[in-house]
Amino acid sequence: MRFRAKMIDIGCFNHFTRVVNTISKLTKTCTLRLTTDKLYFILSDKVANGGVSMWCELSQGNFFDEFQLEGVSTEHNEIYMDLAAENLSRALKTAHNAKSLKIKLTNKHCPCITVAVELPSLSRVSRVVTHDIPVGVIPRKLWNDFKEPSVPDFDVSIYLPPLKTMKNVVERMKNLSNFLVLEANLNGEMNLKIETDLVSVTTHFKDLGNPSWGDNGSQDSTQDRDPETMMDVKVDIRKLLQFLAGQQVNPSKVICNIVNKRIVHFILLHEDVSLQYFIPAHE
């Protein structure tokens, strides 16, 4: 197996760093999947067991000037590895004013992702800062554990308000309860609700808009429903806040899909990055 890539555009450095910083806020460890044309950051905790799940997809051509990959075989030209997202984020912070950034798979006592950052220098000799990030290469027989999640057969799909606004609301609610009810309808309305024995608080959002999903059939069951009818899901407020507070990608749109009483599915859309995040309902 071989992998090496190079990046020289400062805008690409900064954007890639923001993506990795976001991943590191969402999870301590994740799986990095490399293919010839894409990178994937995957967290596949079992939603059925109460864990969150994440799928982040990047087109390598929008970030890297050079990208070479030789996977486990000609038939399966991919590499899967586990890594600590925080370590990669920390390594990229040194690339703020870099002339170039090189990433490659190496073997230094153990498999590593080696990040080499070439920094500006007043002399003719360039300064290179190198970070070796240990990884665990995942064997081919386990790859099926990391399939792309399917969009759930949701009851409501709605665009979210600005994430910063929503984060500020949820942060205040966190002081009142450990759980939050997120509800929305097909009329572009969404509510965030806290209900305890001592207090009941609701924040209302209107005119958010509902995405059209075309012919995929996900909303077939909603056609005859009153658009005012609310569908809801009760979630751990810390998991929701972790998602809202970690975003540095500056997405153009964020879609929220609700499966009534079961799961909430977020999709962040950027021109060259998409991130999906699943939070299961709290029983």
Rank of each mutant, 00 (worst) to 15 (best):
M1C: 02
F3Y: 08
R4H: 13
R4G: 12
A5N: 05
M7P: 08
F13I: 13
N14I: 11
R18Q: 09
I23L: 15
K25I: 00
K28P: 06
T29Y: 12
C30E: 08
T31I: 15
T31N: 10
R33D: 00
K38N: 12
L39H: 07
Y40W: 03
L43Y: 08
A48P: 03
A48Q: 14
V52Y: 03
S53Y: 06
M54D: 04
C56L: 07
S59V: 15
F64K: 12
L69R: 05
L69S: 09
L69V: 03
G71F: 07
S73T: 09
E78Q: 06
I79P: 05
I79G: 10
N87I: 04
L88P: 10
A91V: 09
A91T: 07
L92M: 15
K93C: 07
T94V: 14
A95G: 03
H96R: 08
A98M: 14
K99Y: 08
L101F: 08
L105G: 07
H109E: 07
H109A: 13
C110D: 05
C112R: 09
I113F: 13
A116Y: 00
A116S: 14
E118T: 15
P120V: 14
S123Y: 08
S123V: 11
R124D: 05
R124F: 09
S126D: 07
R127M: 13
D132P: 06
I133P: 09
I133M: 12
P134G: 14
G136C: 10
V137G: 06
V137W: 00
F146M: 08
K147D: 06
K147N: 08
S150G: 00
D153A: 15
D153R: 03
F154W: 04
F154S: 11
F154Y: 07
D155Y: 02
V156Y: 11
L160H: 01
P162V: 04
L163K: 03
K164H: 02
T165E: 04
T165R: 06
M166T: 05
V170P: 09
R172Y: 01
K174I: 10
S177K: 09
L182E: 00
L182W: 00
E183V: 00
A184W: 04
G188N: 05
E189P: 03
L192T: 14
I194R: 05
D197M: 14
D197E: 14
T202K: 13
T202I: 15
D207S: 15
N210S: 00
S212H: 12
D215Q: 04
D215M: 03
N216Q: 12
D220E: 05
S221R: 06
S221V: 07
P227M: 04
E228F: 08
M230H: 02
M230T: 01
D236W: 02
D236I: 12
I237M: 13
L240C: 10
L240M: 11
L241D: 03
F243L: 11
F243R: 01
F243M: 10
Q248I: 02
V249D: 10
V249C: 15
V249H: 03
P251S: 00
P251E: 00
K253R: 02
V254E: 01
I255V: 11
C256M: 12
I258F: 13
D272L: 07
S274V: 14
Q276N: 03
P280G: 01
H282D: 10
E283P: 15
